[in-house]
Design a protein around this nucleic acid. Structure first.
Length: 1145
RNA sequence: GCCCGAGUGGUGGAAUUGGUAGACACGUUGGACUUAAAAUCCAAUGGGCAUUGCGCCCGUGCGGGUUCAAGUCCCGCCUCGGGUACCA
């Protein structure tokens, strides 16, 4: 009988299921390990060989970890909501639940056949009310939370409400939509509806009018990552932009944390890169260009006079914000940086340098946390003020931060004195104890930040309005401003360089002041020769001059109505209109025209740009097209600037030296960026800032098959259901289509109201809702009282190894990280990042077989003869092809149209061509795992999928090689059993050569599994089997450990061998063999001897031979003579146990 | 355009830190066993020149460089794959 995989696999799969071998519970005696596969969506087509690739790899690792004594959580479940089941429902009327159930059963059956060690008792399905109860619950928590930028975390909305009741919103720094300022009295006088409306601007789950990707064919909106090239990812239908009231999640609040978190996790560089691109952080500056004539007020706001500075329209020398800065009582005769006089400076500066060189532990620690604007304030250390050297100072906030070391205990009096002097100088002093800094650094940093934040409130005008930027724009009194002018009041030690001031633009336009733009290249400001607004920009209609109005309006209307698709296909076409208005370049004081063009996007930055045609390709094309001036401001080092009018493209200017740029001329680009930011801050027209490309996640879908929102409406405002009313179950509907009035399918549900009769939300949640936190539910899947218990979370923590395809890089992996961070803020989960290590398995591509039909005939010509004819290549089912040889009879019967096919053969065979492409039905190249399991067994399939190539690499599927691994298993079987299936394992003591083979293999296999190099592991097994066969080894001392070694890869096979050797089942938790270096020791090493780097012969020498003797042996070897003859030996390189290289010449 | 990643025999791939390029497997060829096939086993298999044993030359996408030594490091290209895009 031999190796009867069919019987063996069926037996052990049954055994594992009946004995719940892989069921896992919290066990504090063992270390935990969490291995997770990405949630599969059970499609109707079932699994093809590409799907299990990752599951096999993770299963090998999970089994290995069990052998290593870990308590392994290795669950599986289904992402059961999804469009295909719903589309099928629309077409056939079958409830998606039925389709989904059927597909899951099929998936489960297929998965079971491969022998995975999942704990199926923990299975979850997103469409199960017991599961989506917690999806809904999390949504309610998001709805009830806001993001406090000061604490940098989500906080309960109740806290915000009570702040509004007592202080209004002035002191709040939230990640939110633009909100008009209001006082506590205002708030208390608002109606409930007004209050709720304002709160929506703060909530992390909020309802708003949003520009969405609307797909009419699917009847729903799509997330950005569900749209590819203007078409829906599923189905490929056109997508258009539409303004709709939608639920969104304020993921943008987490942009920086999502970015920072990437440094802590072990993901591939490419995946981190995709996430970084998606978050799209860019550092730059926000600045305001004053308009030559003030814009018309909003029509809606006619009751309020625009806050027009009186000086507008006068000489452009006067700058709009220059007179109204947050100088807040700090005006002094001496600028702030003169914190001491020249004499004291000179006396103390060496001390300062010394102190900086040797900081105390606490100083060092705190400095690391404060430097480079890390807390949003520019902090200097060891700064001289009056006659003191203070530890840290924030000059902008006139705040001194001191660490009290032991020495201060004896000098309380001095400190008092010192504080007094500092206070006389206008500073306030905050003190921290040495131990505090060392032990609770986070707390100290937070308190410093809070203090500085608060101090702004006391000092700045408490009346910010929409017309005033919400951020204080510091005047350029910071000492940095002097660095370039060569004055020496500030320590020129280069300590505080770098770091762009971190503040967030509000994306609102300060109409009275001009046009706000975001730029990553403030250094090129002198080259800004015109401005461009997005067609959607609110200022367009207010600044357009009467003579241009008709043309501009027409352009704007056309641009707005064009679909995304059109807009994309016309990317290279330059279009735009002049508004007639002029802005003033704040540094050149020249008037520059303001245009409208659709190459500026309303959704990014402020929806307006300063155009620098010389150094930006889009601006360049635009300037050329409309004949606008181009001024070069950056020049490569050593190159003479040329006339831009002769250029064919814009000039790449990331590096170089500034020219034609006033005070920054001659600086490098990098320095010029910093100098310009300082300058505009000094002028009060702008500030350094950071922008993100990441948009809030649109969370509504106009579909049936998804989680209902636990939301009802009262007076048009959304309210969450009470948590004890969850889950809100998906109702029955008569059809899965929108209503006649265009409402989503849930509007068809009867009695879709609360018990009080309030209407419930009729949108449903998108696909990523249920998959964002599923890894948490696996920790405690049957908990009815909570998402998961604290105990379970504290034991299982986060996923140690996450395996899945990189198609989820931008979508799922960002949403899930956001979801987790939010729950972390709530104190529900104990880890900030959900996935510690992530591996993207490569895709398995299809290998299509092709036949060549002679054009216009029924004759098919074999691959190598095809060039003699005019042929047409056709895909043929890979099931009809074996080793590229076509089964011609099978082909004739395959499809009616080939019934009368004739063949032109080569050497009696019809050879097919092939092509590597996506595995798909239409290409007849889908390989179904069931057929392979039928033919070779699951263990062979597992081995072969791993043997194909590196896990992370894409690779073509080719069944040809599977015979090799099958032969390998049969060969191993022969080590244990003879032809009559009798066990032939003996108790004889293994010899050294056998032990060496075993231990070499253990070492290799262990290393390979730990490096996820499964393909080389399979090779190592094969080498081992070949060597043991050659040694004719049937000894228990070798074969018993080998069975354990094989267990992660071929679990059924290993269980069978383990049992045959007389051991009780199961092998799955038997300790993994360790290798012993003593068996690997060699007495001699066969040195490759090279001459001038070319290997010529080998020489066996003792490993402990001294170098000199090795050299001698190499040179004296008989084979060496012909290479040395007539030449001089210049040098001999000996690397012990590696190589000998003789240099002759 | 920009950002990643990859190019090694007929094929999948190996070479973990710069140290014998092509492990392991498929395929192919020849042979053994067999009435025959399957299965199994043995041998050869990067290219070229030589084959009387030797042997020698060339070879990791291309062109340079560093080094005693380069698939591996550096510079400049080419090709393919992926991501992303009027992102200021």
């Amino acid at each position: 009988m031999g190796y009867d995989f069919g019987r063996i696999e069926k037996h052990w799969q049954k055994y594992w299921a009946e004995n719940k071998t892989f069921k896992v519970e919290i066990d504090h005696r063992k270390p935990k390990y969490y291995v997770l596969d990405m949630f599969p969506y059970p499609s109707g087509a079932g699994l093809h060989v590409g799907h299990p690739l990752g599951y096999i790899a993770s299963d090998i690792y999970a089994r290995y970890k069990r052998h290593r004594g870990f308590n392994v959580l290795h669950p599986m479940g289904f992402d059961a909501y999804g469009l295909p089941a719903e589309q099928y429902a629309i077409q056939t009327g079958t409830h998606p639940e039925i389709t989904t159930e059927k597909n899951i059963r099929r998936y489960r059956e297929q998965l079971d056949k491969i022998g995975f060690s999942f704990d199926w008792d923990r299975e979850v399905r997103t469409s199960d009310p017991d599961y989506y109860k917690w999806t809904q619950w999390t949504f309610i928590q998001l709805f009830k939370s806001w993001y406090n930028k000061k604490t940098d975390k989500a906080e309960p909305i109740d806290v915000l409400v009570s702040r509004f009741e007592t202080e209004g919103n002035a002191g709040i720094e939230a990640a939110c939509d633009p909100v008009e300022p209001f006082t506590a009295e205002d708030w208390n006088s608002f109606s409930e509806k007004q209050q709720q409306e304002i709160l929506l601007h703060y909530r992390l789950a909020y309802l708003s009018d949003t520009m969405v990707n609307w797909c009419p064919a699917l009847g729903t909106v799509l997330a950005n990552d569900e749209v590819k090239d203007g078409l829906s990812e599923r189905g490929g239908y056109p997508v258009e932009k539409k303004l709709m009231k939608q639920w969104s999640l304020r993921i943008t609040a987490y942009a920086q944390r999502l970015l920072d978190g990437l440094d802590k996790v072990d993901f591939s560089d490419s995946l981190k890169e995709i996430q970084r691109n998606w978050i799209g952080r860019s550092e730059g500056a926000s600045l305001v260009f004053r308009l030559k004539t003030p814009p018309q007020p909003f029509r809606q706001l006619t009751e309020r006079e625009p806050d027009t500075p009186q000086n507008l329209g006068e000489t452009p020398k006067v700058l709009p914000l220059a007179g109204r800065e947050d100088s807040g009582g700090l005006e002094k005769d001496t600028p702030r940086f003169y914190n001491t006089d020249a004499k004291t400076w000179n006396a103390l500066k060496e001390n300062v340098k010394e102190l900086r060189r040797s900081p105390t532990e606490a100083e060092k620690l705190l400095w690391e946390r404060l430097r480079n604007n890390k807390i949003g304030y520019h902090i200097r250390r060891q700064h001289i003020i009056d006659s003191f050297i203070v530890d840290f100072v924030c000059i902008r906030k006139m705040t001194v931060i001191e660490i009290d070391g032991k020495i201060h205990d004896f000098r309380k009096e001095d400190d008092k004195n010192r504080t007094q002097v500092l206070e006389e100088n206008g500073f306030t002093v905050i003190r921290f104890k040495n131990e505090e800094v060392l032990e609770k650094i986070d707390n100290v940093v937070r308190r410093i930040k809070d203090y500085l934040d608060k101090k702004v409130l006391e000092e700045t005008s408490p009346q910010p309005s929409v017309e005033t930027p919400p951020h204080p724009s510091p005047k350029g009194r910071e000492p940095d401003a002097l660095r370039d002018s060569g004055e020496t009041q500030v320590l020129p030690l280069g300590e505080d360089l770098g770091g762009v001031e971190k503040r967030t633009s509000r994306h609102t336009c300060n109409d009275s002041e001009g046009i706000e733009v975001f730029t990553t290249r403030p250094d090129t400001l002198f080259g800004a020769t015109f401005m461009v607004l997005a067609p959607e920009h609110e200022l367009v209609e207010r600044i357009v001059t009467p003579d241009r109005k008709a043309k501009v309006t027409e352009y704007v209307d056309r641009a707005k109505n064009r679909s995304e698709r059109e807009r994309m296909t016309e990317v290279k076409k330059v279009s735009g209109e002049f508004t007639g208005a002029y802005a003033i370049n704040p540094l050149t004081n020249t008037e520059i025209p303001v245009w409208v063009a659709d190459y500026v996007l309303s959704g990014y930055g402020t929806g307006a740009i300063m155009a620098v045609p010389a150094h930006d390709s889009r601006d360049f094309a635009f300037a050329r097209h409309f004949n606008l001036p181009i001024v070069q401001v950056v020049s490569r080092v050593g190159e003479t600037p040329s006339d831009p009018s002769a250029w064919e493209t814009s000039y790449d200017s990331k590096e170089g030296v500034m020219i034609n740029s006033g005070f920054i001329t001659g600086l490098s680009v990098k320095d010029a960026v910093r100098a310009t930011i300082r300058k505009i801050e000094e002028m009060g027209i702008g500030y350094g800032t950071v922008n993100y490309r990441l948009r809030d996640a649109i969370f509504s879908r106009q579909r049936y098959w998804g989680e209902p929102f636990p939301i009802y409406y009262k007076d048009g405002m959304p309210y969450p259901l009470d948590e004890n009313e969850l889950p809100l179950k998906l109702p029955r509907v008569d059809k899965y289509l929108p209503t006649e009035t265009g409402d989503p399918p849930l509007a068809r549900a009867k009695n879709w109201v609360t018990s009080e009769g309030y209407p419930l939300e009729i949108n449903t949640m998108p696909g990523f809702a249920g998959s964002s936190g599923y890894y948490l539910r696996y920790m405690d899947p049957h908990n009815n009282d909570a998402y998961f218990s604290k105990e379970a979370n504290e034991y299982w923590r986060s996923v140690d190894l996450y395996l899945g395809g990189d198609e989820h890089a931008a979508g799922h992996l960002i949403y899930a990280r956001f979801w987790n961070k939010f729950l972390f803020d709530l104190g529900l989960v104990c880890e900030d990042e959900p996935f510690l290590k992530l591996i993207n398995q490569g895709k398995i591509q299809g290998r299509s077989s092709l036949v060549y039909r002679v054009q216009g005939t029924d004759r098919f010509v074999s691959y190598n003869l095809r060039k003699k004819y005019k042929t047409q290549a056709l895909h043929v089912d890979i099931g009809l092809v074996d080793n590229d040889v076509l089964d011609v009879e099978g082909f004739k019967n395959w499809m009616p149209e080939f019934k009368n096919a004739e063949f032109i053969l080569e050497e009696g065979k019809y050879i097919c061509g092939y092509e590597i492409e996506k595995m798909s039905k239409s290409k007849h190249n889908v390989q179904n795992p069931d057929e392979l399991i039928e033919k070779y067994g699951a263990d062979t399939l597992r081995l072969y999928e791993m043997f194909l190539g590196p896990l992370e690499q894409d690779k073509p599927w080719d069944t040809n090689g599977i015979e090799g691994v099958f032969r390998f298993l049969k060969k191993v079987w022969r080590l244990y059993f003879n032809e009559n299936d009798d066990l032939i394992v003996t108790g004889e003591k293994p010899g050294n050569d056998e032990l060496k083979v075993l231990h070499k293999t253990i070492k290799k296999i262990t290393g390979d599994i730990e490096r996820f190099s499964f393909n080389t592991g399979v090779s190592a097994f094969m080498i081992c089997a070949n060597e043991l066969t050659n040694l004719n080894c049937h000894k228990r001392g070798i074969l018993e450990p080998l069975a354990v070694l094989l267990s992660p890869y071929t679990p059924h096979f290993a269980e069978e061998l383990w049992k045959a050797l007389g051991n009780p089942p199961s092998v799955s938790t038997v300790s993994f063999p360790d290798y012993d270096e003593k068996y690997l020791k060699e007495d001699t090493f066969e040195y490759p001897v090279s001459f001038n780097g070319k290997m010529r012969f080998k020489l066996s020498l003792p490993v402990d031979m001294p170098k000199e003797e090795i050299e001698k042996a190499a040179v004296e070897a008989s084979e060496a003579q012909k290479w040395i003859e007539g030449k001089t030996i210049r040098k001999i390189i000996v690397v012990p146990k590696r190589i000998i290289n003789v240099v002759v010449g």
